[in-house]
Design a protein around this nucleic acid. Structure first.
Length: 118
DNA sequence: TCGATGACACATT
DNA sequence: AAATGTGCCATCG
């Protein structure tokens, strides 16, 4: 019956990936690999990338908190997406180098600071 | 079915 | 820090 599998064609893994990304606290960042791992999809970082491309515009997702494993923004430095991600991260207090590099440890630490003090 | 592609990861150099 | 090569996996023509 209602076989809509030929119409929407949204992989079952996407919603899980989106949920993980939505759960990333402001001011912190995660790598594609980490997101995949937390979504129960180890070694599928590239699938995370595809899931991000497929995010409906109506869905507000903190996509800017997802970086490469080396702490770099995945977009080319001259692209619009790069600048947008840069701005969003800095708005949350994350330090981003001119080349788009972020210290993952430092970003994770910013949350610790909040919890560290009483 | 096969080959090319991609908002990646990892090891080496 | 940056460049290169290899591995992975779903999607597409």
């Amino acid at each position: 019956m209602g076989d809509d599998s030929s119409r929407s064609a949204v992989p079952a893994t996407f919603p899980r990936i989106w949920a993980v990304i939505a759960a990333i606290p402001a001011g912190t960042v995660l790598s594609y690999g980490e997101v995949a791992r937390r979504a129960g999809l180890p070694r599928r970082a590239r699938l995370v990338a595809q899931a991000l491309r497929a995010v409906p515009d109506a869905m507000p997702l903190p996509w800017h908190r997802v970086l490469r494993s080396d702490g770099r923004i995945a977009f080319p430095a001259d692209s619009l997406g790069f600048r947008e991600q840069c701005n969003r991260l800095r708005s949350e207090g994350v330090e981003v180098s001119a080349t788009g590099r972020v210290r993952l440890a430092a970003a994770a630490m910013s949350l610790d600071e909040l919890l560290w003090r009483p």
